[in-house]
Structure formats: C-alpha cells, structure tokens
Design a protein around this nucleic acid. Sequence first.
DNA 1: GTATTTTGTCATGTT
DNA 2: CGAACATGACAAAAT
Length: 652
Amino acid sequence: MKLQKPWWAGGGLLNLTVLLSLARLRVDLDLCLPQPAAALCEELLPLCPTRPACASSPFSASEGWGHSPELLAKGRLLREVRALGVPFVPRTRVDAWLVHSVATGDADGAHGLLGTAASSAVGDGGQAAPAGGGDPRETHSSPLAAEEEEEKAAEPTAQVQDTGGRESQENDILKEKSETVDHSSQHEEDEEGVSAHAKSLQLGRKDESKTDAPAWEGGTITESRNENHLHRSDTSFFLEDLFQLLSSQPEHSLEGISLEDIPPSLNSINASVNSSAHHINLSHAISHDVNLHEAMLLCPITFRRDPAARISQAQEPFLQLNSHTNSEQAIPAMSLPTVDNQMRTLTGQDLLYDTDSSIFDGINLMSLATGFNPLEVSQLFEDPDSDSGISLNSSYNTSITKSNSSHCMYDGAVGYSSDLESLSHDLGAVGGCCPEHCHMDIRTMSGFYQDLECQQVFHDHTYHLQPGVPESLTQSKKSQKISGCLDSDRNLSRDEQRAKALHIPFSVDEIVHMPVDSFNSMLSRHYLSDLQVSLIRDIRRRGKNKVAAQNCRKRKLDIILNLEDDICNLQTQKEALKNEQNQCNKAIDIMKQKLHELYYDVFSRLIDDQGRPVNPNHYALQYNNDGTVLIVPKELVTSGHKKKAPKGKRKN
DNA sequence: GTATTTTGTCATGTT
DNA sequence: CGAACATGACAAAAT
C-alpha cells in the first residue's frame, strides 16, 4: 500500500484539505474496495472542488462547477460506481454536496445530473435521496445545525489547545451532521424507505464519533480509529466519504482558528495556498490530520542536530499541544534509552522532515487505516537501513514487549540496531561489560525525565537526551559513553589484552624493548607458567616484528622516495644531455654548411687543362696524409679505386 | 558499499 | 644455533 505521487505533489499549491481527505480515502479504498473502485477514487480526485485547477472559486458554479464537465463526469463516475458493483448509497450529504455545488449555478443541470446518478442508485435498490434533502444550507437551518454553528463559534479556543479537541469537535460535527441527515432521511424513509444497510452505516459513524472522542483522551485514538477503519467493510460508505470530504472541508473550516495558531511551518503552506486559492480554508485540514503526524514527529526534534532546522520555531507549540495526546500512550514504549534508538529517531527526523508532507499524512492515515501505531509506521520510514517493514515491525514489537518487562533497557533495543549489535559484539556483551553503567545512566536521568514527564513525548525514544545539547555533542558523548565501557579494553592492543588476561606482570613495552639479557633474567626471576612464557615470547617477537615491519616500510618508503628523486635527477640529466646533443647537432650542421661552401669555393677556382672550370658534380677533392689535395673523379672515389686525377691539377 | 591505505601479523630468509 | 632483523604476503582495520 504505497501512496503514489499525486497531482498536487509537484505544485506549489498544497491543498492539505484535499490531500488529507484523499489520502485517507485512498487508504480506505485500498483496504476495503476492489481495485477498480480504488482506481475510480483516483479518477474522482480531479473533481475535488478545492483542487488547485478549480480552486479559484471552489463553490462557485459559475466559475468552476456550473455546466462543468467535471460535474457531468462526476455523474458518469457515480454511475460507474454502481456499474462496478460497489454498493454505492447516495446519502443526503452526497446529494447535498451535488446540490450545493451547483446551487449557485446551473441548478437544472445539477438536478439532471443528480437525477441520473440518484435514479441509477434507486434502480439498484439503493437509497436515492431527494436532491434537496441533504442540502447543507437546509441542514444548517435546522436546530441542530444552529447548535453546530454556535459550537463552531465557541470552540476555536479549545481547538487550538489540542489536536484531539479538534478531532473530537470534528467528530461532533460529523455526528451532528449525521443526525441532521438522519432527520431528513427519516422523512425519506416514509416515502422511499431507508435501507437497513444505510442505517447501520450511520450507526457505525455515530459509534465512530463516540469512540473517537474519548479515544484520544485515553491515548488510544489511533487504535480506536484503526478499529473503525478496519471494521469498515461497506464500500459505499467510503465513496460517500469521498464526496463528503471533498465537499465538507470548506464548509467546516474552522474559522475561529487564526493563522497565528498554526505553526509557522504550516503557515508558509497556508500562505501559499491563500495566495492562490482564497476560498480554501486550510485551518481545518491542518488541525485535522497534520497535527497528528506533527505530534508524532515534532517532539523529538527538540534534539535536532541542525539548529537552523526550519521547524525549530514550530516545535514548541506542538510539544505542548501533542504531549497530551501521546504521553500516556507512549509511556509503555519509553523504556528504550538506547543509543541506537536515539540515533534512529534523530536521523529519522532528518529523513522525515525532508520528506514530502504527503508521506506523513500517508503514514498517519495508513496508521489509522491499518492499525499501525503512527510511530510504528513512521519508524518504517525512519530506518534508512531497513528495507523491510516487517523486520522493523518485529523490532518494534520486541522493544515494546521487552521494555514492558522493565528489565535492562538494552534488552528492548536488541532487535533495533545493527550498530548496537556490532557494538555489543565488540563489547563481548553490553550488559556484561557495563550494566552498571547503563543502569546508572538511567537512574540519573530518571529525575530529569520525571521533570519532563508531562512535556516530553516519550515515544520518540530520545528522552535520555538532554534538550538543548547539540546532537553532535550528544552523539559524541553517547559514543564515548558506550565506548567508555570498551575504552579500557578497546584501546589496548591484542597483546596487551592477552597479557592482561594472563595477568602477566610486565608491560608490553617492557617485554618488547627490554634487552635480551634483562629479558631472560626477568623470565627466570619470576615464576611464570609455560603459557605465560610463551605469550611473553610471542609478545616480544610480535612487538619486535611490528617495529621491524614499521622500519621496513619506512625504509621501503625511503627507498621509493629516493628512487623518485633519482628519477627526477635522471630526467633532469636526460634533458640536459638532450640540449647538449641539440647544440652539437646545430654545430655540426653549421660546420657542414661551411664545408659545403668551402668546397664550392675551391672548385670555383679550379680549371682543367683546357682552361675550363671543373664541375664539382663530377670531381671530388681528396686529401692525402702528406697534406696534398688531389682532384679525383667521383666515380673513382665511389668505386673505391682511388687514383690520382689524371689531370693532376693542383690547388691554386 | 566499495576502493584504497594503513597496520599488525606470520613465515621465511639473512646477518 | 639462537636472537635480531628484514621483508614479502596476507588480513583486518582505518580512511
């Protein structure tokens, strides 16, 4: 059951009203409806009057809904609901919404469409309510509606105080609406007869509202709601809920709540919403479900690592708001003061707060629908290492059950953390190494938490941290505290640990660096077992070998560095030799050129017997050892037959 | 989670 | 021959 990314996720306008309602309905549908019905719910989403696309005037028929294809499509979809076999029961609120949606616009079209949908429902034996039977304005005209209005005017203060109050109020409103609908329905019963099924549904709704109100006081709001959601098996109920929720949010917006009562983090959302959709009052939505996950998430953020966290300013009101909600419920789960729990919670905060708020709502609503504790579900998202919700779930259960036994606090967290497991592994045994340490910490912190008992939500498992302490410091202290059990042993080398285990009365340094004579005399002077002597010799051997290895590596490194230096020197030398070679080549070229010029100069001065100039191409100069120079034909020179020039010319 | 570096250790050879 | 040392190889820890 995974909430897919919806149409609103990418936009700047976050319609929480629709978001929350649809998220819940999707959960419900996924749980209870056949798949086509859930898909149909998806199809119905765009029809939401508060959707940004038509949010400019959600209930203005002339702008958004009068003659709108959405309305016609809605009628088509209503027919499809029935065609899918979903026992859709168009109760008065659905009809009321339809009528209300088109009341200011094309009433005829609305009635026509409504008649189409309703008649289809009637044809199936469903309860087809008259179009005007459930008109909210008519409902409000009733005495009960008047009371509702009065309550709405009188209750904002209570709504600001806690989210549970808002929920209970909402439930009261729903109940009263249901009762109001009942009144109208009873009139309809006389004419058309109300199905017992619809009655049971309404009774179920009443029960739900009855159980919800005290539920939060008892700290089991999620459980009660879960039960209700799980017991919902009638799909028509949810389809009606869809329409009801799509339509009722603007009507039931809690006008008494000002934006100041909304945390800044949500005010920003509200501001963006208000900027583009003036008719959407998000107060109701915000006070409805968001606070549930805020209650679940914000309290632990007191210890957030990042002081610049964007929610830091919003925490305090929620701490007070939600502590009532969770404190009683959370106490059984509080006895998990494990480091890893804290880490998980904190990292989970980071994760969760960087996550789209829709996921929170999804979590929360999933929890409502599936029976998971919100914390439990959130932990599923908290654990970055976990790829299995099952394992987390089991871990959670383990921690709860074991912590209830009030034994060593570490017991409850055994299943939580691979880190802790590894730590325990390194310790040999956490409880074995420093149980006193752990219990001492718990005892010393108990007073602190008694002070915070009514303020802190213990659910977050971070109660063992002192607020205000930066998490980085706390983490380091935590790791030090944990490793403190180990430090005495863990900082020792293996040989030192072995020597300590065998109670060898010498230090490793002594054993290793002692001269051989002293070493032998030391062994002879002390009565040592063979095991001890063997270990001492091993320690000495390993210690010396360790030093030797270090020296060897150092030496090797030096050799490498020297070789690198040699390479550099040789490269420099090579470059110098190359330059020298180039200079020599240049000198040779110059000399060749001069020789060539001289050659031709000599031939230019030579003449043969007839007084003609000697062609240098046919003759060459031959230098003899005695210093004489002969003019030799080239063919004789090349053939190796060195003969004196027959002409015996001499250089002038 | 992987790749690289550092470190400790062992086996073996040399001095 | 034994001790000390040197060094390659390997694995574990650290980065």
